[in-house]
Design a protein around this nucleic acid. Sequence first.
DNA 1: TTGAAAGCGTTACCAG
DNA 2: CTGGTAACGCTTTCAA
Lengths: 328, 328
Amino acid sequence: MQDVARLAGVSTITVSRVLRQPEKVKPETRDRVQAAVQALGYVPDLIAGSLSSRESRQVAAIVSTLAGSIFASTVEGLAQTLREQGHQLLLGTSEYSAASEEQLIATALSRRPDGLVLTSGDHTPRARRMLADAGIPVVEVWDIPEAPFDMAAGFSNVEAGRAITQFLVETGRRRIGFIGGQHEGDQRGRLRHQGYATALKEAGLGEPRSIADSTIVSMVERGARNLAMLMDRWPDTDAIFCASDSVALGALSEARRRGIAVPERLAVAGFGDFEFAGDFGLGLTTVRIPGRAMGAAAGRLILDRKRGAPGMVKIVDLGFEIVRRGSA
Amino acid sequence: MQDVARLAGVSTITVSRVLRQPEKVKPETRDRVQAAVQALGYVPDLIAGSLSSRESRQVAAIVSTLAGSIFASTVEGLAQTLREQGHQLLLGTSEYSAASEEQLIATALSRRPDGLVLTSGDHTPRARRMLADAGIPVVEVWDIPEAPFDMAAGFSNVEAGRAITQFLVETGRRRIGFIGGQHEGDQRGRLRHQGYATALKEAGLGEPRSIADSTIVSMVERGARNLAMLMDRWPDTDAIFCASDSVALGALSEARRRGIAVPERLAVAGFGDFEFAGDFGLGLTTVRIPGRAMGAAAGRLILDRKRGAPGMVKIVDLGFEIVRRGSA
DNA sequence: TTGAAAGCGTTACCAG
DNA sequence: CTGGTAACGCTTTCAA
């Protein structure tokens, strides 16, 4: 920066101003400085800048995985929104890691991000304390928590599970099963299951028929195995709601293998509307989730807060949508 | 840090040492400092640390998109490898953005990352200069460039295109088409096409039959449209190689629509082995790409270099694999 | 509209 | 094994 300043015949602070608030510098001076920046190929050091200005122009996000098209679009929406407003994304994934969310949060915070995006869920007291101490905007995505830590951008998993189950009821199904969620660590799957159970009760359709054997690694295989178990136990089942589209895909394979006609004898509904849900065979009936929009909204919430926008909304409910295709 | 030092009755530099090189501090002192860190809930400031130590323990990656399961696993593999070795990922996506790769590189470099991961391709002279000036390890992924900028972790797209085409030839196909790649901006698709054309020539099978209408947004739709165009123009085509699995998925739909039997009358091969390639209908014959491994290798190359590992490998060829399923 | 000086919180370097 | 002091490269005052 000193080199640039020298070449332009100004002081370093003027160079800084040209870069950060060009309008505060006289056009001639500005041009001279910009020429010097170009000539020297100067790249500012944001680390030094951040230390000095106490803002990092960086937002951290922690997701469990990018695989399976689940959080990928959310991360993408977030990254794009941040970039458009001059911020960068610091990404942490927790998959296959013994490191607790707590640990990941601590690591992220040590970079002094201007905000943090998390998937909603239970956070430990220690995690909550760290977040509070950091004093930065925090957005939980992929659900509307009952007691949000700070802000949230998501949809109601309970309502979504209830809605798709009601949809199955409306299409004449009476013996509806559930597979593939509600295991430990899948809080959102559990919420969907809760919605499913509620809908059953409201329709007077008896007890839930749920299988959630999580000993199988792949979601698709899990879907196949779980459907098999469910049909063995409740052979007259006429519809299933799967906790995710990949589980539904596995269930469809298993149904084909067993010669169970879909949707005639068994309706299959998924969850997520993943990229190819409409592009194989009869198409998967599912619940569309605003993945990308949640990321974008999370970015906006953080940046608005940072700007000190007045009358801030804290919870953004982006809803969901039932997409009917051939499988149910 | 001063608070911690005071509470532990040591100087700040000792606190720093306990955190970064615990073995250099006497156990008793160390315990006292660690207790103080706990008591105060101290979170070190990596920004200040980076400024001082001139290493950021952060690696930047720039990919075009996380959608479509293309780069997601690579990013995940990278993030995991970095995390395991105490580094963090700074992620930039270029999608839908007018900002050039150049701009993204400049932004990433301003954080002084310890390394940079890029998808291979043409980089502008200015970009190359910035990379050179930064003096950090750079890894190109998703191809083995002829003239790598620095290091590379990938596979040969040309060879992969050649191999799958040869496979189709070996299974008795003689009039083999290509759809969905080779348009502007898809350098790797072009390389696969080149391999395809080479294989045709080697087998004496005449001129390429290629369609690459890139005016359609979705890859799946593009596959459908392109297959339609190809079959209209060369009705006797008996096999196609699709530049990606999503294109292949679209082609399969279109074939179904037209009553073209797959694989009897038309063999369909994809590229990528995306997550669900084996899970719909007859299963997609495709080329499996080591997505996650490329990310992990890229991380290792950068961290090894940083450590000054001797006799460094600069190019890691992770190969590819033909996966035969029902479609070809 | 521009500049001088004083940090930002940490680590490198060199002593003790 | 521990500590003092001086950076690291920039931005924030506060003045001119």
